[in-house]
Structures are given as structure tokens and as C-alpha cells.
Design a protein around this nucleic acid. Structure first.
Length: 425
RNA sequence: GGAGAGGUGGCCGAGCCGGCUGAAGGCGCACGCCUGCUAAGCGUGUGUAGGCUAAUCCCCUACCGAGGGUUCGAAUCCCUCCCUCUCCGCCA
């Protein structure tokens, strides 16, 4: 959510931001509602003040055993008027709030203006693509040969996009999660949290998934609950409706959770194997920082995510997303794309974003600054990392000619010392 | 799931036979005084949001879990919902 004052005073800026983000939002309607609201509020306040004053008089009169009936009669009408004004005011407020939720965050000035992912720019590359002296296989084939995944049975018990990890595949998946968690905790100083995977509507609205993406969420009707699409949702909302004392900032949290996404509208796209799933595992970093620090922290977080790929020795590049490809709530986003030599393409394994005060406003996450003033924090989050495509990249980059897979050094301790993944009976 | 208790300011805790309570008292915190240092003591201040304003002064409005109702007037009465705690039952 944006600051209404900012919208009022920078209409053109906001209009341009909406356009650059390929979003639709009716600024004029908001300005009109805002105007109406202030007028309605003024009327209400004045009448209410009058009522409060007279009501006190009535109280005094009654205490002195004097007659107050004429005032009482008068006040009945006023009470009715106030009720009308109050209804009117809350209607306007509701409409305004709903409208405000449809306005996206404003991209940072450093973000390239562009329509689609084609306009994203590579800001840096890391690692060397391995030279193969044989034809590298795709992860699906490698997984099959080593009995790491069971896509078919996953589809049988749930549906497509719900993979089953088998034996050493399950071990590798678990190793990845634990390795990443430990790495961020020990090396980068994050604090681990384990959070609910099911959240309520308010929480889902706080981080900006709702109302826009309702169709992408798994929804539990009876309770109006949602399955989380990312740990960002529960973790960021941990401090919703709170005012943190100054010394509570910054907060660096990391959480592993499964993530659930309906992926509505993306049928037929990247469906092979683990590329696009309805349920997947992800380690997520979330930060709450002082507004003055968020841009610096964005770079730091991106680096935190990159270090995982570096430790795994997987070649990647970093994209700075253009305005049109960024999410609704983000002011700036970097995507980490890992190289998959079997598929011969880069796969997104992490998305690191600065949401500035956008989520903080929605969820009301504030802090008391050193000068005593209450301000909104800035929130950031980044995958560190999503496992499925990391899994793919490991299989494809570390495959041997015979189809076995060498375990990356850093994962060996997490694989009970196993150094090579090979067929198991 | 059954029975009971309860949700008030950063915290504890009054108020709850309706009005002078945005809210006593205490703790904490901030500033000042005092003090050889520390402790104690004294004084003042200390919620959020909106409006007004040059203003973080004053003044007005809203908020005592959330929403609705009764009333001239509700933290206080009524209804619905949510949550917490205790006991019982059930269960990973």
C-alpha cells in the first residue's frame, strides 16, 4: 500500500509507476474517494463534537436533578444524523481501502523500464559453464536412472506438479534444505523460524498476494484459510500490527517451508520434471530494516543467496528485473538464474526484493525511531534458495558420463558422507 | 468436542450498578534536580491514527480483542465472531 499523501502529491509519478508495472489501477477514483472521505470525516467530527458537548451537559443537568427533556429530544435527531454520517463515512473508507490495495508499489529509480522479461538485464555472472566431453542429460533422465523422483506416483496421489522424492533423491532434497538453513544461520547471522503453512486472509493481504493473486492460491473454504505460496507471507506478517522498539531492528529471519502454488494460467510452460510445481520446498530469508538501510541490504541479501550457489559451485547470473516483470509489491528485484546444462538454459532459483514500506503499510509493521517517531519499517525477502531447480542444476552440472551424480563437496556431510549418487535397487 | 474464566496503554493492573476515564495506581522509559560514585529520592513527561496548525504546543474526532446493537451518551449493557487460559474428553 502506498501513502495516500504521496499519491495526492505525486499523482503523475504514481500513474507512471502503474503503467510501467503493467498494472491497472484507478487513481482518479482514489483521489475522488479521498476527497469525499475527508469531507465526510470533517462533517462527522464536527457533529460528533457537538454531540459530545451536549451529552456532557445532559449529564450535568441530570446530576443536578434538572430537566433535560428538551435537549434529549433535540439530541435524538442528532444521533440519527450522526449514524447516517458514520455509515456514509465507513462506506467511503471501505471503498477507499479496497481501491488502495490495487495500487502496486513504485519501482525504484534504478529499475529499467520494460514490458516483459525480455527487458531484464544481466547485472553479473558467476562461474564457468562446465565443458562436457559427452552429451549432458536432462534432470528427468538422470532422476529416472537413479530412482530419485517419482513424478508418476506423485501425480497419482495428488496431481501433476506434486513430485515424490525417492531414497537418495529425498536425501538430497533434505540435504539441500539443511545445508542452506545452516549456511544462512551460521555464516550470515539469520535467525531461524518455523512458521504455519496455512494463513488467514488478512495475512495474505498484508504481503500483497491478495487481492491480486487469489486465483494462484490454494484456498480452504471452510475457514477462509490459504496455503502459503512462500514463507515470505507468514514470516513478514510475524510483526504485523506491531511497533518495534528501535533496538529490535534490523531483524534477519530465515525459514524453510514447503510452498504451494496453483500456477493458474501457466499450463504447458516449463512443465518438465521439477521445473514448475504446485508444491515445492524453499528456504526464505526475510529482513525488517530501517528505511535508510534497505537499498544497501537488498544488495547484501542478493549476495547471501548467491553465496549458496557459489558454495555449490553452480554457474549463474543475476538479473535485475525490469518494471514490467517485477511483482506487484516490489520496488526492485534481482533474480538468480542458475545454469542447467542438460536443459541448456538458465533457471530461476531465487528472487530477492526490496518492498520498501509497501508491505509494512499493508500489514502495519512499524518501529520507533531514535527521535521517538513511529515509522514504517522496510521489508525485504529473498529465496535462499528454492530447492527444485537447485536440485535440477546439481543433477545436470554434476552428472558423470555413466549417469551417476557426484555430490557437491558442501553437501557430502549432509548426505551421510555419500559422495556419488548412483542407482539403488 | 464439553464445562468454566478472561481479553484494558510498553508491561502489570483498577474501572465494568453507563456520563467528569484516553483511561486510577504501580513498573518501565525519557528529561531535569539532588548526589563524591552507585542506589535511593524529588519533579515533569511518556499510546496510535485522522483533522486543525508554522508547530512534535493547544484544540477537535476515533480507538479499552473484532464487528454490530441499545442510548442524548458505552471500556462499562445486549448480540455475533475471534483469540488466550484452566479442567474434562480425544489424538499425532
Amino acid at each position: 500500500m502506498l501513502d495516500l499523501k504521496l499519491i495526492r502529491e505525486n499523482v503523475d509519478l504514481v500513474r507512471q509507476a502503474i503503467k510501467n508495472k503493467n498494472e491497472k489501477a484507478d487513481i482518479d477514483a482514489i483521489l475522488e474517494l479521498d476527497d469525499k472521505k475527508r469531507k465526510a470525516q470533517f462533517e462527522f467530527d464536527n457533529l460528533k463534537a457537538e454531540q459530545n458537548r451536549v451529552s456532557k451537559e445532559i449529564g450535568t443537568l441530570k446530576k443536578e436533578k434538572k430537566d433535560a427533556s428538551s435537549l434529549l429530544n433535540e439530541m435524538q435527531n442528532m444521533a440519527a444524523d450522526i449514524k447516517d454520517l458514520s455509515t456514509n463515512l465507513s462506506n467511503i473508507n471501505t471503498a477507499l481501502e479496497i481501491a488502495m490495495l490495487t495500487i502496486p508499489n513504485i519501482p525504484h529509480e534504478s529499475v529499467i523500464i520494460g514490458k516483459s522479461e525480455d527487458n531484464n538485464i544481466i547485472v553479473r555472472e558467476w562461474g564457468k559453464k562446465r565443458e562436457f566431453d559427452f552429451e549432458p542429460k536432462e534432470h528427468t533422465e538422470l532422476a529416472e536412472q537413479n530412482n530419485l523422483l517419482d513424478i508418476i506416483r506423485g501425480a497419482k496421489i495428488s496431481g501433476s506438479g506434486f513430485p515424490v522424492y525417492n531414497s537418495q533423491g529425498a536425501l538430497l532434497e533434505r540435504a539441500l534444505i539443511n545445508f542452506m538453513l545452516d549456511f544462512h544461520i551460521k555464516k550470515h547471522g539469520y535467525r531461524e523460524v518455523m512458521v504455519p503453512l496455512i494463513v488467514n486472509r488478512e495475512t495474505m493481504t498484508g504481503t500483497g498476494q491478495l487481492p491480486k493473486l487469489e486465483n494462484d492460491m490454494y484456498h480452504i473454504n471452510e475457514d477462509d484459510f490459504f496455503l502459503i505460496p512462500t514463507a515470505e507471507v507468514p514470516v513478514t506478517n510475524l510483526f504485523s500490527n506491531e511497533i518495534m522498539p528501535y533496538n529490535k531492528l534490523p531483524q534477519k529471519l530465515v525459514a524453510y517451508t514447503p510452498c504451494f502454488r496453483r500456477e493458474a494460467g501457466s499450463y504447458g510452460k516449463d512443465t518438465k520434471g521439477l521445473q514448475r510445481l504446485h508444491q515445492f520446498n524453499k528456504v526464505e530469508m526475510v529482513r525488517f530494516v530501517h528505511p535508510d538501510e534497505s537499498w544497501e541490504v537488498l544488495e547484501e541479501m542478493c549476495n547471501d543467496a548467491e553465496e549458496i550457489l557459489q558454495a555449490l559451485k553452480l554457474p549463474y547470473h543475476v538479473l535485475s528485473l525490469c518494471t514490467g516483470d517485477m511483482s506487484f509489491a516490489s520496488a526492485k528485484t534481482y533474480d538468480l538464474m542458475v545454469w542447467a546444462p542438460g536443459a541448456q538454459k538458465y533457471l530461476e532459483v531465487s528472487s530477492v526484493s526490496n518492498f520498501t514500506d509497501f508491505q509494512a503499510r499493508r500489514a502495519s509493521i512499524r518501529f520507533r525511531d531514535t527521535d521517538g517517531k513511529v515509522r514504517f519499517v522496510h521489508t525485504l525477502n529473498g529465496s535462499g534458495l528454492a530447492t527444485p531447480r537447485t536440485f535440477i542444476a546439481i543433477l545436470e552440472n554434476y552428472q558423470n558420463e555413466d549417469g551417476t551424480i557426484t555430490v557437491p563437496d558442501v553437501l557430502v556431510p549432509y548426505m551421510h558422507g555419500l559422495q556419488v549418487i548412483s542407482v539403488e535397487d
